[in-house]
Design a binder for these strands. Sequence first.
DNA 1: TTGTACGCGTTATCAT
DNA 2: ATGATAACGCGTACAA
Lengths: 337, 337
Amino acid sequence: MRARTLEELANLTGVSRSTVSRVINGGPVSEATRSRVMEVLAHVRYRPNLAARRLASGRSGVVGLVMHVPAANLFTDSYFSLLLEGITETLASEATGVMLWLSHRTKEETLDQVLSSSFIDGVIATATMLDDPLVDGLLASDLPAVLIGHRRHDLSASYVDIDNEAASEVIVEHLLSLGARRIGHITGTRNTVSAEDRIAGYERALERAGNPHRLMADGDYTEEAGYEAAFTLLDRGVDAIFAASDRSAVGVYRAIEARELRIPEDVMVTGFDDLAFAATLDPPLTTVRQNIRSQGEAAARALLGLLHQDGTGPRRVLLPTELVVRRSTSGGVAHNT
Amino acid sequence: MRARTLEELANLTGVSRSTVSRVINGGPVSEATRSRVMEVLAHVRYRPNLAARRLASGRSGVVGLVMHVPAANLFTDSYFSLLLEGITETLASEATGVMLWLSHRTKEETLDQVLSSSFIDGVIATATMLDDPLVDGLLASDLPAVLIGHRRHDLSASYVDIDNEAASEVIVEHLLSLGARRIGHITGTRNTVSAEDRIAGYERALERAGNPHRLMADGDYTEEAGYEAAFTLLDRGVDAIFAASDRSAVGVYRAIEARELRIPEDVMVTGFDDLAFAATLDPPLTTVRQNIRSQGEAAARALLGLLHQDGTGPRRVLLPTELVVRRSTSGGVAHNT
DNA sequence: TTGTACGCGTTATCAT
DNA sequence: ATGATAACGCGTACAA
């Protein structure tokens, strides 16, 4: 026995369509009729038509998730899968569906698809680049949106991020406290918010310490770029290298080994992320721990908050990071930001 | 200037709502009015409301994609990302949207979400297990569905797959032709269609050759299981090992090295999949090439076919595989199935 | 060729 | 507390 529509359900129970709708949505119904309808609902397999619900009420209980990455990266880069886990887990616990858009073709096309779909109540989008037409378009639309990643200039956007600049400062201060004086920085992908903010933190820490040496080489978060950039920095004479990601720190390790130098005796090294392998490198890598899964959870919760009680302003969440000191800088304690 | 509904568009152009709808959907309209409406359409940013369209016509232009994979496999397995690429690329080229469900919680919950969503015109689902309530539920629903993976017993389902049994036979025949007599097989995950079919092919080839030795050890497609199973087979005395996946073949390589045996002189080894690394192993691995991306493309095309011209029966696609002979079996030529 | 009118399944407003 | 009834935006018979 199955009922496809409220109308059928109404015939089955002997009450009107509206009453059945009230029972399902928790409206004011007498206890007697409520239990009678519930009785029938337990026996038939009724699934409300979300398209109709969306059309009538403007709500569907489904949110969009836009991660403009090639499908390959979704699976190889643990960043996206961890985000995905945190987001979907949190949304599922609130009985909220997820519609996922990956990079099909251009960002404009993706934007168009998302805005056209008309069944989502809100959207979560990854925002890594400083300028991103996809993100701009989402923010310009009237769709409630939460970004993962900061948009520094835009004060009206809701977002979840870590304080890259502060975390970066803590790293550099840690190196300074251990006696490093010529600290090199291998940047992340330029024009991403995270890379630029980490650079800013690096510079601010040095400035505050009155240290004149700005020793930077551009990277792109990959191991290979870290390897290349490390040689540049080593040639300029550094006693410490702060790599913008753990993966690029691995490249630094290889470069230092190639030069037959020792970590940390000749050159101290730090990463950023605290991915699983960081603790098992030789020597174990000092780095900044950011909990990516929590960022996904926080983004989901922020969007749910935005949807449930609209009228409040944008939601901004800065999640804490933690300096994890290991042997690559020969230390032992941990600091929080 | 923007128009949110057909009604607004109608006011803007001076024709009726239905005429605008006809222009958009390619109905019978005079060339004069068509161009007039198109003129306006070019200036305003109109996005049809898919929820309303779906409700009115039963079609939304969005299909669902269900890949119920544990999050862990998401990272390690390029299988899913390759499928995803093929599917989304093909659908995008037909202006069809994709709604993606990954493994959130139980299969029953996922099934419920998919069937409840009411937005999608059809669904593509990965079907690896012999018994899968999610797949059963999808097939039992009236939603047009295409499976990736075979359902041997179910003749009414549409699917895309490779002929695992035939490919497996070709591998074993190849080993036999090179003089192997005690051929071991490390299975894939039991109760998956692919694993059971590859076992069937292994057994059929041996039977046909009148070879009495059935030497099998259970694996689960992973390198680690391959490593363990290889020792079992080596202890039973084999001169060739057919691993059900390239990854498990890597485990076999390690086990053979641990026993200080040589490939292929002491033991020949084959894999299955022809992942990128297979050619760079030492020695390069003989294996079966299956084009996973094409499977995704074929599934998307099959579903589109199902949607556009309903009335025809189920679509069944068996994609070709190719035996790639490399030095792990000391050969040189290639065979097709 | 074009416009009118109805229906898709639901929620929300209004009487009762 | 309950039941008509009007939207929501669109597609599409049907009539003109």
